[in-house]
């Protein structure tokens, strides 16, 4: 039987120094679904997201307990190379962060360093990634120009295209629309719906309507704990737990 759960966390605890930011998180993420992580600021949802591709390694004085299984293998096992993990699990950040390079070079940066050298293949990859990110028509004639010239919404779609060019299995998105205007936000939400066919998407969002609109599963976090996790529809219509209801109805947070 094929296991549909591509990432599983088992009793994960995370510490910044002595401060425990996450407590006993056990969560399964299913293939080809959009999972939203919601909760008030500081609840640990971004921390969890960054745990899933070991981006938290970059912060001094932190440590992880428990296991994060990606395709059955613990990515925190000592023999695992975090670089390899990040190739398979891509990430899009809160603020668009293109490199100060051309649009073309932004997208080919990762693949080139992973060893792809053929010009024709690279060009095909650029077109494919930009099409997937619904940016191709807007930038196909200016691929040589600096990515910094693009608008914020275009930059964010470029960052998505850049992540897709690595052909990851999972795409982590950390509040990808929080720095964007409503029109760009709508475009990116639409894009997320399309991408779900090929990718597993885990998204952190502050915006509950967004979570309700685009996700299949929703996890609600509060004070470093996973309070409730189930189908989005259920969470937003008849949550089991009072805290969840209070939060989504705007009574706190």
């Amino acid at each position: 039987m094929e296991d549909n759960r591509v990432i599983k966390t088992k009793d994960v605890n995370f510490f910044y120094g002595k401060f425990r930011a996450l407590t006993d998180i056990s969560m399964d993420f299913e293939k080809h679904r959009v999972t939203a992580l919601i909760g008030p600021s500081g609840c640990g949802k971004s921390t969890l997201l960054r745990l899933l591709n070991r981006m938290n390694d970059l912060i001094d004085g932190t440590h992880v307990e428990g296991e994060v299984l990606f395709e059955g293998k613990n990515i925190y096992a000592p023999d695992v190379d975090p670089v390899e993990v990040r190739r398979r699990i891509g990430m899009v950040f809160q603020k668009p962060n293109p490199f100060p390079k051309s649009i073309f070079d932004n997208i080919t940066y990762g693949p080139k360093l992973a060893g792809l050298g053929d010009r024709i293949e690279l060009e095909a990859l650029v077109e494919q990634s930009l099409r997937q990110a619904v940016l191709w028509d807007e930038v196909k004639d200016i691929l040589g120009q600096s990515a910094m010239m693009l608008s914020g919404g275009q930059q964010q779609r470029l960052c998505i295209a850049r992540a897709l060019a690595m052909k990851p299995d999972v795409l982590l998105m950390d509040e990808p629309t929080s720095a964007l205007d409503p029109i760009s936000t709508a475009k990116i939400e639409e894009l997320i719906q399309d991408l779900k066919k090929d990718y597993t998407i885990i998204i952190v969002t502050h915006n509950m309507q967004q979570a309700a609109r685009i996700s299949d599963m929703t996890g609600f976090f509060y004070l470093g704990k996973l309070i409730e996790y189930s189908a989005t529809e259920k969470i937003f219509t008849r949550p089991d737990i009072k805290q969840t209801e209070d939060y989504i109805t705007g009574r706190f947070g």
Binding site: N53, M55, L58, V83, E84, V85, R86, R87, R88, G90, M91, F93, K95, N97, P98, F99, Y109, G110, L113, A114, C159, R162, A163, M166
Partner: peptide
């Protein structure tokens, strides 16, 4: 953010 973007691409 430049460093994060690069590392998140598995570089």
């Amino acid at each position: 953010t430049f460093r994060e973007a690069s590392l998140a691409l598995g570089v």
